[in-house]
Computed example of a mutant assay.
Amino acid sequence: MTSNRKTLSGGALLILIVLFIGLMLVVNVMFRGARVDLTQNNLYTLSSGTKEILAKLDEPINLYLFYSDKGSQNIPQLRTYATRVRELLEEMAARSNGNIHLQVIDPLPFSEDEDRATTYGLQAVPVTAGGETVFLGLAGTNSTNGQSVIPFFQPDKESFLEYDVAKLVHELATPKKP
């Protein structure tokens, strides 16, 4: 009788494990891409205007976030803000139906990436008395050689972050008519 109980409880446990794995697979497929913003100020919820701009994109837009990760290791406020900027850009790229391609670039001093950032018109801001500089800017291009930049994301203007990026995307999506 004890052997019969062990077999039944072992079989029931095995069935529960298989059901749990099957349920997780189904949930993973059904809710892929579902997002919930539980932050206090809805930091990761895009405004309706931004969603409308992203929905109307007809051509691909390339966004290049230049952020000096290594140069900002001793500046926690800037690192936190840079993470916020990157996450907003990733959210916009995810909502653009594949029309926004984001690249995050760490321009090391005296590198081709640093030259590329300055070619776009981004500003390197000095952060130490020794002359070390940090990039935190965005360059965007479209398929018709259009170009737009945000030279430096200023942490004190975080409340305008989504507006500034949406404006840049809108400028690239609607090229000026001749």
Score class of each variant (00 low, 15 high):
Pro60Val: 04
Lys176Gly: 01
Thr133Gln: 11
Arg86Asn: 12
Val29Asp: 05
Gln40Ala: 11
Arg116Ser: 06
Ser68Thr: 04
Gln123Lys: 14
Ser47Glu: 13
Lys177Pro: 10
Asp115Met: 01
Arg32Gln: 05
Ile75His: 08
Val29Leu: 10
Pro178Asn: 01
Met1His: 07
Val169Thr: 03
Ala129Trp: 08
Pro126Ile: 05
Gly146Asn: 14
Tyr67Thr: 09
Lys6Arg: 04
Leu38Cys: 04
Leu161Ile: 03
Glu91Val: 08
Gly11Thr: 03
Asp37His: 13
Val104Met: 13
Ser72Glu: 02
Thr83Lys: 14
Ser148Lys: 05
Tyr163Met: 06
Asn142Trp: 02
Ala93Gly: 10
Thr144Ala: 06
Leu8Thr: 11
Val85Ser: 07
Leu25Ile: 01
Ser68Val: 05
His170Arg: 11
Ile61Ala: 02
Arg86Asp: 14
Gln40Glu: 15
Gln123Val: 13
Gly98Val: 00
Arg84Asp: 14
Ile105Val: 09
Leu102Tyr: 03
Tyr67Arg: 12
Ser96His: 07
Val18Gln: 07
Val29Trp: 09
Gly33Gln: 04
Arg79Phe: 00
Lys70Val: 11
Arg32Ala: 06
Thr83Ser: 15
Leu65Asp: 04
Ser47Met: 13
Lys177Ser: 10
Thr83Trp: 14
Thr80Trp: 04
Val85Tyr: 06
Val18Phe: 05
Ser9Glu: 15
Val169Pro: 00
Leu102His: 03
Gln147Pro: 08
Asn145Gln: 04
Val85Ile: 06
Val26Ser: 05
Phe160Asp: 11
Gln73Glu: 02
Leu25Pro: 02
Val26Met: 07
Met24Ile: 13
Tyr81Val: 14
Phe135Gln: 01
Asn42His: 14
Gln103Gly: 12
Glu112Cys: 11
Met1Trp: 00
Ala34Leu: 09
Val134Ser: 00
Asn28Met: 07
Gly49Ala: 08
Asn142Thr: 03
Met92Leu: 01
Asp58Cys: 13
Leu54Tyr: 09
Thr39Tyr: 12
Pro178Ala: 05
Leu108Ala: 12
Leu161Phe: 03
Met30Gln: 10
Asn62His: 10
Ala166Asp: 09
Asn99Ser: 06
Ser48Ile: 10
Gln40Met: 09
Met24Cys: 15
Thr141Cys: 01
Lys177Phe: 04
Leu8Pro: 01
Asp37Trp: 14
Leu78Lys: 06
